[in-house]
Design a binder for these strands. Structure first.
Lengths: 195, 195
DNA sequence: GTCTATAATAGGATAGAC
DNA sequence: GTCTATCCTATTATAGAC
């Protein structure tokens, strides 16, 4: 039988990653089959293996690229600790609302990574957390923050901020600027020194 | 061939639920097979269907019972809003640290619920959120809290508190009392009125 | 109440045609 | 570079023996 299409290396690769992203986010890595992904891309299942070593590599590449982007996309401004925190909070919210599917996968599919891949991803996540913890330590040393345990506070703040992805919907009651403002105010108060 | 064991209805049912809980939490609902669960229970796969209608019912029952317990286990004390918030925070942390696997499943496996089951679970989750929001509204009206958007603040606080399950390990650097104290202090400050 | 056996289907991945 | 066809294994769930 004649094949349906010719060669589309440059376009099929990105489309594969996009389809995998969408389907993993909707249904979960384990629940999605290579056949489903292929159908979404518009090719046969066998053809996917021209663009990825296997299903695991598909997941790992999505997560690693996401976290590397997240890290590369922000660095602390040369400013007081409180301004650095504001910058971090606003960037975190913005970045996460822009990429709901990637964020979702990076938090939900850790269990489905091979041990070696898991170690890489955990390292990147730790690097990101360290950026926030450095701000908290600096503010604590300067007396503008009061954070008895900077590691706990870091994880608490990141969990609070990341939670925005579970409820925010475009066109809803609050726009992005308002959401950013509200989270920034709560985060700021949560770590503030008693006055 | 002779069967290995006799009748164990009273014990196999609970063991099935416990095994499913453990495996779903470790590997995810979609990644776990009925054969794996049966092996953990110590029976053959076919025998599981004496205790559950299907795999979906296993997941749904775990989540529903968990959320119903969570709701039944707490009611606001007759006290000022700040004390009610403290009670909620401490109860939430305690309850979640006591049942890490159930909490994990209830947050991670929503995607794997049938639509009808999903609606039931979402209703229960909403009921729980409403309890916290009522406290925030009350404190806001009394002027002890300053929360421009009580719904957003509710979701932000719950996300922050629930995050404890992602890092807390028994026997680690901080004990439960210290963890409770730190989260309570952050939550309290985050919603406090400016003084 | 649990067993073995099996139905019916779907899974990841590969081979070889074109 | 994509196709069809297929290997091999695993899946959920059921049937019928004991």
């Amino acid at each position: 039988m004649a094949r349906k299409q010719g060669s589309h290396a440059e376009i099929t690769g990105p489309r594969l990653r996009q389809a995998a992203l969408r389907l993993f986010a909707r249904h979960g890595f384990a629940a999605v089959s290579m056949r489903q992904i292929a159908a979404e891309v518009g090719v046969q299942a066998g053809a996917l293996y021209l663009y990825t070593a296997d299903k695991q590599a598909l997941l790992f590449d999505l997560m690693r690229d996401h976290l590397e982007d997240l890290l590369a996309d922000w660095s602390p401004p040369d400013a007081p600790a409180e301004r650095q925190l504001e910058s971090f909070v606003r960037h975190h919210i913005r970045y996460h609302l822009d990429r709901p599917d990637l964020v979702f996968i990076a938090y939900m599919e850790l269990r489905n990574l091979d041990p070696a891949n898991f170690a890489v991803i955990e390292r990147l996540r730790r690097d990101y957390e360290d950026q926030l913890e450095a701000i908290l330590k600096r503010g604590q040393a300067q007396g503008v923050f009061e954070v008895p345990d900077t590691k706990l506070a870091t994880l608490a703040l990141i969990a609070m901020l990341t939670g925005v992805t579970t409820w925010y919907r475009e066109g809803g009651r609050l726009d992005r600027a308002a959401v950013e403002d509200h989270y920034w105010r709560m985060a700021c108060k949560a770590v503030a020194a008693a006055r």
